[in-house]
């Protein structure tokens, strides 16, 4: 079951409408998530990584629409087209939380402050499993214990404000994992946490992946996290996946200028004071006033005339694809 595809996204276009303007937040995004593997989606703020997650979970804001493309969930009862399900329909509600669960960035705002942690875990069990009241209670305690929360019998009745940041995030993972979902979507799960707590959470996610074969989609902006956790990686820029492939290929031999620039712009631990970092000039374009062709062209050092048109996705290798006109030069460069 290791390489079984759990979810396919194909040509997804999600547009968000505000103030009579349209933000083409996702403009043709394709990828797949495999069982027991971690796909990292990496990019800067505003590149559409969270919109991707929200599209899959059908948690988009009201004034937004999946305009085109397909999201297919390969569940135990055959494939389901998530994008065609009504957002609040029974089918979607059965999938959301049970089959595909999500961890949010900020555990302070994602947990409800007026309900106890135990209540919020048991709520999931109540709607998605046939467990009775006392079974639900003991299952909630078991879940908290497996997340490494001390004194779970006592903690289960406590409210979120009594938990520390790391414990809240673990409680949220407990909620997400309560029904043994097949896919776990984690939207920047450790951005609000300290590095030592982040290490604890990552350890936990690795265990889930190993023991339950959960497919994980991890959204992050930190290349370090990608290098440590990912099996596959997709680099996003302004609503497009510019480069995707196995982590070894993308990080070692990046063929898109944005991936290369991104890797060159971060200081890497252990490389000392003399390492050279190169800033990417300019800033991400205004989403309402996008460049015509390749979105990165304005900041790209390798711009040519053809960049005024959006390049197609090309396969560099069977599992490595890139969206750039000049990728061949970089691929040859990387092969050297």
């Amino acid at each position: 079951m290791a390489n079984e595809v759990a979810l396919t996204v194909n040509g997804l276009k999600t547009y968000i409408y505000t103030n009579n303007r349209c933000n083409r937040a996702l403009d043709g995004v394709s990828f797949e998530i495999r069982q027991g593997k971690t796909l990292c989606i990496v990019g800067e703020s505003g590149c559409g990584k969270s919109v991707t997650a929200d599209s899959i979970m059908q948690l988009l804001p009201t004034l937004s629409r999946i305009e085109d493309g397909e999201i297919t969930y390969h569940g135990p009862d055959g494939p389901v087209r998530i994008d065609q399900l009504p957002r609040d329909g029974a089918k979607m509600r059965a999938i959301r939380g049970k089959e595909i669960a999500m961890i949010f960035q900020d555990p302070m705002t994602a947990l409800n402050p007026v309900y106890s942690i135990g209540f919020q875990i048991k709520e999931m069990l109540k709607y998605h499993t046939g467990l009775g009241r006392s079974d639900r209670h003991s299952k909630a305690i078991d879940l908290l214990r497996s997340m490494g929360i001390p004194l779970p019998e006592k903690r289960v009745n406590e409210y979120p404000h009594l938990y520390s940041g790391g414990m809240r995030q673990r409680a949220m993972i407990a909620i997400a994992m309560s029904c043994n979902p097949r896919i776990l979507i984690a939207d920047e799960p450790t951005t609000a946490l300290d590095v030592t707590i982040q290490a604890q959470i990552f350890e936990l996610m690795d265990t889930l992946k190993r023991d339950h074969g959960t497919a994980i989609m991890l959204i992050t902006h930190d290349m370090g996290v990608v290098a440590e956790l990912a099996d596959d990686v997709a680099v996003m820029y302004m609503g497009n996946i510019v480069e995707a492939g196995p982590v070894g290929k993308v990080l070692r031999n990046p063929v898109h200028p944005y991936t290369r620039a991104l890797l060159e712009s971060i200081p890497v631990l252990g490389r000392g004071k003399d390492q050279e970092i190169k800033a990417i000039p300019g800033q991400t374009p205004d989403p309402y006033n996008r460049p015509k062709g390749c979105q990165f062209a304005d900041r790209c050092a390798y711009r040519i005339g053809a960049c005024d048109q959006m390049p197609d996705e090309t396969q560099v290798a069977p599992d490595h694809r890139v969206t750039c006109w000049r990728y061949e030069e970089f691929a040859a460069d990387a092969a050297e």
Partner: peptide, 25 residues
Amino acid sequence: QALLSAIPVADLDKKSRRIVLQGDV
């Protein structure tokens, strides 16, 4: 030592073993 080992490093050749601290500050 624990703090340094906990940092994810954007370098595939430098994967070190993480020292995971128990508990919170």
